[in-house]
Design a protein around this nucleic acid. Structure first.
Lengths: 152, 152
DNA sequence: TATTGTTATACTCTATAACTATA
DNA sequence: TATAGTTATAGAGTATAACAATA
């Protein structure tokens, strides 16, 4: 599928590797490192008694900018009925609240309750907590990593 | 939840940031960059006419080391009946084959068929293809990134 | 009797279509 | 008539429990 010159093998060590093969190797290393990340998220949700859907919903909402049901459906590229279902689950737990928009009484916005805001803050704090392997890196490595990631 | 000294704010720019805050910032940058990755995988599966489950199954199997149904259930931390269902879907498409183990006629192993091996190879090739933003990085950045990721 | 895998069944999540209430 | 959201319903994917075959 890829021509013979497009991805020169990285085992040719006598010359410095091409940008192409460096990019491929770095990308692969990144992917491999991130394989376990979905499981980390799943475990985190379970810890809070949430499903992946509930967590996604909380993380999408912001106290200062409530979103309509339709906006959420577009953001998640799913059907509106699915949003109804997800918001129902979260409303049962008093983490969000629906409000009818006075300007247009057809649309309903979804607001984080104070409890929802607390749960979201807790989730974010835990998500952004770097793993041990990360914190063990020397300062120079972390600075280099950050500098490159900021370009991406 | 975190003591005042544990995560010094990164806006204190007059002194060099602590290793802790560097680690937190780098981890966060990495997470943010990877948000879109699950969607990339989903689109890739759809392109091959696979579900996420089927893709996961193919990627877990290796031509030279067949795995039992039970081993797969443990690897995926799911119920054995779920493995039966997933393998059924893949067997319908002739991408895997069940074989009874002669040594213990209770256990069945799952083998990739030649077609399954081809699909898996195609998936891996596409997954490991670095995105454009990655290939656009200068050589020095890629080398630095790779060097750090290899430590992780 | 214990273990491997399957079948029967139910629950969660997602989608489509029909409906309601507004506009 | 068109749009926002809900309800009715169906399908995919996951789990639990009962079961058949083998150890």
């Amino acid at each position: 599928m890829v021509g013979p010159d497009a991805y020169p093998s990285t085992v040719v060590a006598s010359r410095s590797p091409s940008v192409e093969s460096l990019a491929a190797d770095a990308w692969r290393a990144l992917l491999d490192y991130f394989v376990g990340n979905r499981e980390r998220h799943l475990a985190l949700a379970a810890e809070y008694g949430l499903t992946v859907g509930s967590m996604k919903t909380l993380l999408s909402l912001d106290p200062d900018e409530p979103k309509s049901m339709r906006a959420l459906a577009e953001e998640w590229k799913c059907d509106a009925s699915n949003v109804t279902w997800l918001v129902d689950r979260l409303e049962e737990r008093h983490l969000v609240e629906r409000r009818t928009l006075p300007a247009d009484r057809r649309v309903k916005t979804v607001m984080l309750t104070p409890a929802g805001q607390r749960v979201k803050a807790g989730l974010l704090e835990r998500m952004y907590e770097p793993p041990e392997s990360f914190r063990a890196l020397p300062r120079a490595d972390l600075a280099a990593l950050l500098r490159v990631l900021e370009k991406l």
